[in-house]
Amino acid sequence: MVSMDPSIWIAAFFTIAATSYAFRDNVVFKFAEYTFIGVAAGHQIVMGIKNIRDYGWTKIMEGQIIYVLVFVLGIMLYARFHREYYWMYRFPIAFLVGNGVGISIRAAIHSDFIVQVAQTASTPLIGGGAMGTINAIITFVGAVTAIFHFIFTQENLHEGTLGYIPKIGRWLMLLAFGASFGNTIMSRFGMYQGRIIFLLRDWLQLV
């Protein structure tokens, strides 16, 4: 028994249309592609305006008149499209960049550097049986040699006997990237399977 819900039929059409590109470029796919871009941009605007209402407009309504300044800055973003007044766009973008950079580097230095270095330094290389020792050594060697691989300011680090250190780093990274690739295959199939389940269960109602 096939679904009688028109929204399911439209969704099934767009699923098949978007998939069709895997076989060959065609006009149905192009239709789906343009639809997707239009809808995505429309949704983005709707959510943008809702965000402005919830976090900006309500503040003004509550009497925080200073928020008018944010609206002025927000409108200045659109000077980007004007040849003469382009420079005005730099004020809000400078604010966003300053905020984004400040908010992320203050914590990145802790999460990505201090904690990672401390973890590497504090893990005992020997202990936890033979397997535990082997694992700890591989992890330590992997972390240290991978960092060495990215030091490009000292050319001699990549030459002669010393050159084996970054080389080991590269080998271990390639092994890790292989794992990443294997997982990527699972990830992509995992996502497409959702559409197959939709087509068979919700549209054709075969399962």
Partner: peptide, 27 residues
């Protein structure tokens, strides 16, 4: 375990240093 953890920890430390340096240069 050790393979991914080790190599990606090195990469992560590199990302951390890069992000902080780029951030400071931007500021």
């Amino acid at each position: 375990g050790p393979i991914v953890s080790g190599a990606y920890r090195g990469v992560r430390i590199g990302i951390g240093i890069g992000a902080v340096v780029l951030g400071i240069k931007t500021l």
